[in-house]
Write a protein that binds this DNA or RNA. Structure first.
Lengths: 338, 338
DNA sequence: TTGTACGCGTTATCAC
DNA sequence: GTGATAACGCGTACAA
């Protein structure tokens, strides 16, 4: 900038005024400066600017698992919206690992991001302390944190699973296996609560034997399903609490020599783009990923520009049950082999 | 830092020495300073540090489409490796949009990233000028840029498609439709070249009618396949040049009332985690995503630490043909309807 | 309207 | 072994 000032025979203050339009500058000087900028190929240094202004125009985005298509879609939308608003996004994913998560959030804060968008891996005390301590605009997505009261956009998980379970119940299923996500997450807890609520509404008992923890991962779900399907009284249907796990569920069914939906009905949280192309066409709960991403980005943008109300805003969106062909009436399902 | 210095009754220089271990400090002063740091809750400002040191310990990662599971996996690995090395990653995805891409790369450079990892959307002159002008450590992944001679890790696309085509040829298929990616990308061109080479090896003519451009997107591939499948002499097999497009291919087949592999065989570039769980089990070319991500991260890390050789390193990995059930011998395929 | 000078928080260089 | 001080590049009072 000094070079530009010299070349144009003006002071740095004037150059700065031209670049930022922060003060009126006479046309002749303006054009002389603009030319000098071209010639020198000057580019303003964002680091120095950040140091002075105390803002980086960067937001940290941390999700538990970017390999999960749900998060991928949300991240893509967020990045897009934020980019259009002139913000860069720093991405971290921790593979659902709570310790890694703490490290990463520190890294983000250390880099002086202006705000944080987080889909936390677990309800971790350290994480919560760090977030509270950072005192940054924060929006939680997908998963809430107990005791952290910030902007957030989440799904009505309870209701979505409640409805899906009711649907399976309506098909006559009485023993519905449930592969749960980690109960350390709000989604894990809320989805399970929806399952329980539906059972209760149908005046059916809740059986511990029918629910297994799959931690939102394919591998764990595989094992969990294996236990369910090889138990003495095999369930006639299985609900998977997310997309990754349903693949594990299907693998188990295949490995055990069963067929879906002939032998066991399956439904799952999270939709797939290919769900109605490959067999069996999976019945799923579709999340409004586009809306989730857009809302989250907008929430942080509003906070950043100071035009949010003081009170945190909590957006709750609804899922949509996509009924396809992976669930069939229990009357068409052969009785479980003891 | 000034506060810490005051509290501990030392100079800022000494505090800095303690924090960075850049100079020997007497034990008593050291402990006094460390205590002050604790009490004040001091954290070193990375922005100021960057300004002084000229390094941000951040690398920019730009991929054409993070929604594509292939890129997602690679991004996840890169982020992981880089994080462990103390680097943050700034992510940009441009939805295969060349103009957006230019904007984003500018944004990244503007933020003073230390290095760049790029899977370019297209072979764009502006992009190349920007990259060359930035003079930053750069590694290209997946897709090469004509005339840009940097570190890179790519697949042997030509050979992979060549082998896959040969496989289909070996099944007796003579009219193999080819849904191509954008020819603006090196992967688009190389994969098509592999197809042509296989045809030539089999002494079969290359027919323009059989190849359609799908631009790596599901929608375009849908239309392209529709043209192929409704033409007077329908191909008995189709190869899709990536994962997103094969979904479009399958949708067309379904919508037209055909069956895979009964009526038309299908194979595709890029593997899916669920490929052997849902029907038809897709025959694909699996890319070593883990290795690609690790190598790319390592290349940039080496460059950043200055221990790379001056000459750019170009890593070429091999794909693996996963033969499953979506291709069958042409003798079992009913003759195309005129 | 324009220029000067200072401060943002670090680190490196040099005296002591 | 420790302290003073000059950069890093920018924005902005304040003075002219």
């Amino acid at each position: 900038m000094l070079d530009v000032a010299k070349a144009a025979n003006v002071s740095v203050a004037t150059v700065s005024a031209v670049i930022n339009g922060s003060a009126p500058v006479s046309p002749e000087l303006r054009s002389r400066i603009e030319e000098a900028i071209q010639v020198i190929g000057y580019k303003r240094n964002a680091i120095a600017r950040s140091l002075k202004l105390g803002t980086t125009r960067t937001v940290g985005l941390m999700v538990a698992d970017i390999t999960n298509p749900f998060f991928t879609d949300v991240v893509a939308v967020i990045q897009d919206v934020l980019h259009r608003a002139g913000y860069a996004v720093m991405l971290c994913c921790n593979d659902e690992d709570v310790e890694m998560q703490d490290e990463q959030i520190e890294l983000l804060i250390d880099r002086s991001v202006d705000g944080l968008i987080i889909a936390p891996a677990g309800d971790d005390e350290t994480l919560k302390r760090i977030i509270a301590g950072a005192n940054l605009p924060t929006v939680l997505i997908d998963r809430l944190l107990d005791g952290i009261d910030t902007d957030a956009v989440v799904l009505d998980n309870r209701r979505a699973v409640h409805d899906a379970t009711l649907y399976m119940l309506g098909l006559g299923h009485r023993r519905i296996g449930y592969i749960s996500g980690s109960l350390e997450t709000s989604t894990g807890r809320e989805r399970l609560a929806g399952y329980k609520a539906a059972l209760e509404a149908a005046k059916l008992p809740y059986e511990d034997d029918l629910v297994r923890i799959g931690n939102f991962r394919e591998k764990d779900a595989y094992k969990a399903t294996m236990q369910l399907l090889t138990s003495t009284e095999r369930p006639s249907a299985i609900f998977s609490a997310n997309n990754l796990m349903v693949i594990g569920v299907m693998k188990t069914i295949r490995d055990i020599g069963l067929k879906c939906p002939e032998d066991v009905s399956v439904a799952s949280f999270d939709d797939f783009p290919w769900a109605d192309v490959f067999q069996p066409h999976l019945t799923t709960i579709a999340q409004p990923v586009q809306a989730i991403g857009e809302q989250a980005a907008q929430l942080i943008l509003d906070r950043l520009s100071g035009k949010s109300p003081a009170a945190p805003r909590r957006l709750v969106l609804q899922g949509r049950l996509m009924i396809r062909e992976s669930c069939r009436p229990v009357s068409l399902t052969p009785r479980a082999i003891a």
